[in-house]
Design a protein around this nucleic acid. Structure first.
Length: 246
DNA sequence: TTCCTGCAAA
DNA sequence: TTTGCTGGAA
């Protein structure tokens, strides 16, 4: 941990930026959790696990095909290794994922099925999820949010990128440091909505490449946008001087 | 080329 | 702390 220098106080603090962010995003767009309209907890679970490190487009396209082949936890258990790998191939990371889904299915089956899993204490469910190879804290916690109603704020790649651009977290932060900083600054009942809204923002506007800053509701508190604006002003000034009379 | 709603082995 | 895993899309 680095000591925070009081002299380094910025015009807009992390706390102020987070307040703005929560406010702006709830006005920007109301994003309903997709897992609320999905009744089948098996699909929620698998959808979340396969969402990791996978683009939205890929998931939209191939997840329905996957569920056609494997509509239930039991179907995962009955499948051969090759069948599972084949169905997972378009998602990438298929060997790891085949093993992950297989082991998850086995552990839940050993427990007595999905119903038994869902009636676990959340902390026990988290433990089970973390014992599955390929499932880490980020994934376990988003499953707890979706299936156990935990009001957590989970940081993923999109949210980390946005937080760094805004200047809310240090540039070297990982998912977990960003979460430690941001989660306490979001009211519990808004954490899921803010999480989902940020992911959508990251996909559509604050994209990895060529972000659409002019359309961004968080622009007023964004360091990246401010720098970009400054850069644009300077270069247009230089261009004008260069093309102007002597 | 880089990156994708990470994770774990090295 | 770094690197491999993965095919597909931009």
């Amino acid at each position: 941990m680095v000591e925070e220098k009081p002299s380094k106080k910025r015009a807009s603090s992390t706390e102020e930026k987070m307040r703005f962010l929560v406010e702006a995003l709830s006005k920007w767009r109301v994003v309903e959790p997709w897992w609320q309209s999905e009744r089948d907890p098996y699909r929620v679970l698998v959808g979340l696990l396969l969402g990791n490190r996978t683009s939205y487009a890929l998931r939209q396209r191939y997840l329905p095909k996957f569920f056609e082949k494997f509509p239930s936890l039991d179907s995962l258990l009955e499948a051969s290794e090759e069948e599972l790998v084949e169905a997972l191939r378009p998602f990438g990371l298929y060997k790891l994922r085949a093993r992950m889904l297989r082991e998850l299915a086995e552990k839940i089956a050993a427990l007595g099925g999905l119903g038994a899993f869902l009636s676990l204490e959340p902390s026990k469910a988290r433990e089970l999820l973390l014992s599955v190879p390929g499932v880490g804290e980020k994934t376990a916690d988003i499953v707890l949010a979706a299936l156990f109603g935990k009001e957590v704020f989970v940081v993923d790649t999109h949210i980390l990128r946005i937080a760094k651009r805004l200047g809310i977290v240090p540039s070297g932060s990982d998912l977990y440091e960003a979460r430690r900083i941001m989660e306490p600054l979001i009211p519990r009942d808004k954490r899921i909505r803010v999480h989902l809204a940020l992911i959508q923002l990251g996909r559509e506007i604050c994209r990895p490449r060529r972000p659409r800053c002019s359309e961004c509701p968080l622009r007023p508190v964004c360091e990246y946008a401010a720098k970009k604006q400054l850069g644009a002003s300077l270069s247009s000034l230089v261009a004008r001087r260069a093309s102007g009379p002597l």
